[in-house]
Nucleic acid binder design. Structure first.
Lengths: 151, 151
DNA sequence: ACATATTCCTACCGAAAGAGTAGGATTTAT
DNA sequence: ATAAATCCTACTCTTTCGGTAGGAATATGT
């Protein structure tokens, strides 16, 4: 599994906050309740999002979280990358610049690099807004059965 | 990580066997040695490939393994799918037909389904032959710096 | 016939990652 | 002052990953 519950819940939180929009700060307990997830676990996930600058937070009574930007300005790639650390499909492709010592002669490396790019490409092409508006065409492409093929 | 050493080594073995071609059976110890991997571990991986019908095997002295078909007739998708069990990027997309009970109302599901398709699509488009011939253009696409952009 | 080289099969094991829990300190609105 | 929230550190249980160990069955060459 490339994306663990951490990344998945993080995205769920972002979607929830995007939906609740500009109505002020939304508390962790509200999010946990409406998504039916463990509050304590979400806490640790939101901490990552918050430290990564994805959210604005307000402590104390009536505090909570809200998006730092507009939904259309978040790509799914950056949300998952922040929470998961890496989205590389294999261990031999980790960070920019760092590579396996056999890289020069490895015949499978281009495959993994290509797969990595295919994933990154897809996730960079979808924004939070696409999710809340249910843009199935963009997400599912040719595999969308409810999308009009004529368009 | 979506693809573990199991899938990666399996692919390495397949590439190795594809290169050694029709020169008769290649023994496990030969493969382990030429790829510098643990023979005992490879054994368990080759067993999966063999049971899955990817290889022909011959027991006893001078025995070993060889590909059951031609390199061009193996997609990377089927090799990885067999060894990894699933290539789904998230837990909520497992097998055909089986789905999460919240599926009907889940707004992030189309994203995961789309990502899954993007991965499957990429891996179905590459064959063992592409790897042994070093078809960088097919594997890296637009990201291939050594490929001629004019073509 | 026999030694040898090989695949085949079952079981085990330590380390790391995944998925949370627990408890309390700090901050802020009322 | 009190209640409601974020913030912070540490712990724990389970599963997966990445192998290892030992031996049974099967072919081959001499």
């Amino acid at each position: 599994m490339m994306v663990s519950t951490k990344g998945r819940y993080a995205l769920t939180v972002m979607v929830d906050l995007a939906r609740k929009g500009e109505d002020g700060y939304v508390s962790l307990s509200d999010i946990a309740e409406s998504e039916n997830l463990s509050m304590k676990y979400l806490e640790s996930i939101i901490a990552i999002l918050n430290k990564g600058g994805m959210l604005k937070s307000q402590r104390g009574k009536n505090g909570g979280y809200m998006l730092a930007r507009e939904p259309k300005d978040y790509t799914i790639n950056e949300i998952l990358l922040l929470t998961e650390g890496t989205l590389a499909p294999v261990n031999c492709i980790m960070q920019e610049g760092v590579q396996c010592e056999k890289a020069a002669t490895c015949s499978t490396l281009p495959l993994w690099a290509g797969l990595d790019k295919a994933i990154e490409n897809y996730l960079k092409g979808i924004t939070l807004e696409d999710i809340i508006t249910g843009n199935r065409k963009k997400m599912l492409g040719d595999y969308c059965e409810s999308c009009d093929p004529a368009e």
